[in-house]
Amino acid sequence: MSDTVQAADTRLPEDFQIDIAVQSSDWPEEAVLAGICQRAIDSTFVCAHLDAQAGSEVSLVFTSDEAIKALNKRWRNKDKPTNVLSFPGSDPDGEIYGPLLGDIIFAYETVCREADEMGIEFSAHLSHLVVHGMLHLFDYDHQENDEAEAMENQERQILAALGISDPYADAPLIADDD
């Protein structure tokens, strides 16, 4: 955990579970992925002031471009791979989410390619995508410019707490109509 996000500040619900499934052998070892993801999720809960029920869980699936392309086509009618997909599992009546927050799925080849293109470390890009996916599970979106601005600002704050540079610094704000 970074110096900015202290363990005492955590807002993670009691008995929070991160379920990891590695479906492609290209990914780093599960323990490495778990460390990156735990840190990013901790920071997301603290910085975004998220609340979830005790015993809540998130499922993280590490797969390939081929597998995520099939999901993207089925659920978003887009016949191409993407870096991350989020499938919320909760639709809270009130302010609290859980117990199943949802599934976040990552495509190895796309994550690697994007990290290389941006000239950043793989772990920094994966951390960003974990944060991005978690925010989607809590109703953040980027379909409209105002939504995109709010979500990107939240991501910047969380990533700064992790010591990760602003991934949007050199990119224009564009809503995701893709």
Rank of each mutant, 00 (worst) to 15 (best):
P81A: 15
E66T: 14
R76T: 12
P81Y: 11
D91R: 07
N77A: 13
N77E: 14
E66P: 01
V84P: 03
D93F: 01
R74I: 12
A67F: 01
N83T: 15
N77T: 15
D91V: 14
E66M: 04
I68S: 12
V84F: 00
R74D: 08
P99T: 12
P99N: 04
R74S: 07
S86D: 03
L85F: 08
G98F: 10
E66S: 08
G94P: 03
G89L: 00
K73D: 09
D91C: 11
G98H: 09
T82D: 03
D91W: 04
D93I: 14
F87C: 05
N72R: 03
W75G: 03
D79E: 13
S64H: 07
G89R: 04
G89Q: 02
I96R: 15
T82I: 13
D91Y: 06
E66G: 08
L85A: 00
E66L: 07
R74E: 11
P99K: 13
D93A: 07
S90F: 05
K78C: 04
N72I: 02
P99W: 00
G94Y: 13
F87Y: 10
A70M: 02
N72A: 01
G98D: 03
S86E: 08
S86W: 03
K73W: 02
D91G: 06
P81C: 11
T82F: 01
K69L: 10
R76P: 03
K69M: 07
R76S: 00
P81F: 12
T82M: 05
A70N: 05
N83P: 10
K73G: 11
D91S: 15
L85V: 06
Y97K: 03
E95W: 08
R76N: 11
G94V: 05
R74H: 08
A67K: 07
K73Y: 13
E66R: 15
K78Y: 06
P99Y: 04
D79A: 00
W75V: 13
K78P: 06
P88L: 05
K69S: 09
N83R: 09
N83W: 05
E95V: 03
G94H: 10
S86Y: 05
P92W: 01
S86H: 02
L85I: 14
S64F: 03
D65G: 12
G89K: 07
S86F: 02
W75R: 10
Y97H: 12
V84N: 01
E66Y: 04
P92I: 02
V84A: 02
I68T: 15
K73I: 01
T82W: 04
K78H: 09
K73E: 09
D91L: 10
N77V: 10
L85C: 03
